[in-house]
Design a protein around this nucleic acid. Structure first.
Lengths: 182, 182
DNA sequence: CGTGAATATATCGGTTCGATATAAAATCAT
DNA sequence: ATGATTTTATATCGAACCGATATATTCACG
């Protein structure tokens, strides 16, 4: 699924600027689902407009440079639904954290511990954002709650595992508690 | 972390061809951690060889085209460790499945159910591969078991959530547990 | 009053993907 | 035995995408 299709999807929920679309990837329902940079989003919106799958209007703001607000067209909506119905690809993950853990035997222990703390903090932040979104009155649709719940379940499992098993890879911890199973 | 660095990391475990590196992403410890295409791996290995971070030898095979087996150099090893110690980026996920669930209200119910079945099957496959890797005598290092265990915990949480909550987005389920309107 | 962050858009080089091509051996089917 | 498919192995190329950077203005903080 390319960025064009993803932008089209976000626009089914309502009008948005490129800036707002970027924000959605970071803060909202789409945290941990998809991400894209400005360098992808702005060209994607331009191309979608050329294909009449979205329309834009420029909104003047007092002083500040004009906003370009994009809205999906009926054709865009149909195109998005057709794309999503045609099949999906398996999830793709890129976890530098897991890479670091796999190669932890090559790294200073302090670095490894810092990375685990960082990763736990990121996960707790993401969890808080997800639970805020889940409680939002605008997110009460069953399928949205399913998607949010799935992300939440994953985050909770990761946090619990890291909290309970981080002693496995600490040389100090290994000396204290010789890594058992669960 | 670019593909060059990742290839360097895999080569700390021993010699490998480009083909074998691709296989590692699919079958082994790196399933659900990282992925890259041939179009990235081969050029990456070529550039690493130019920088003397890896060396290659051509291994003749009876009849079949020659293998190019890559091995990491001491400089390559140092370079990899320095890269990993310098910091890591947050995990990046691209889940077309979660996208489909978020927009499930726009899709035929049969499509949604098929996607859930597919996703469950993929997760069960990945879990089986991970548990086979976990039991392998060559994977008994504590940090490897931590990385594998984390992946396992995530997969188990996803599978359990989908099994217990998939009725949330089925219209049949909705009939059993009346949801709001559109 | 100045510094920095936020809003908004755009560009550009470099990285990576996906599809495709070649080629020989092994394996499987008919 | 002959043909079809899969596996091993490498390579290329356009399209997609990222990360950094640039510009310009407003708002908030001290």
């Amino acid at each position: 699924m390319d960025i064009k299709t993803v932008c089209l999807g976000l626009l089914t929920f309502g009008e948005a600027t490129g800036y707002e679309i970027k924000k959605l990837f970071e803060d909202g329902t789409f945290n941990g689902v998809f991400d894209a940079s400005f360098g992808s989003i702005y060209p994607a919106l331009t191309r979608l407009a050329e294909e009449d799958l979205v329309v834009s209007r420029e909104e003047e703001q007092h002083g500040r440079p004009d906003k370009k607000v994009y809205a999906i067209t009926p054709r865009g909506r149909a195109h998005f639904i057709a794309s999503l119905t045609a099949g999906i690809q398996p999830d793709r993950v890129r976890s530098e954290f897991s890479m670091a853990m796999i190669f932890a035997h090559l790294l200073p222990d302090a670095t490894v511990q810092t990375y685990i703390d960082q990763h736990l903090a990121e996960h707790r932040d993401a969890l808080a954002r997800l639970e805020a979104t889940s409680a939002d009155p605008g997110s009460q649709m069953a399928n949205l709650q399913f998607a949010i719940g799935l992300g939440r379940a994953r985050l909770l499992a990761s946090i619990a595992f890291m909290e309970h098993h981080r002693n496995m890879i600490s040389p100090d911890g290994a000396a204290l508690a010789p890594a058992g199973r669960d």
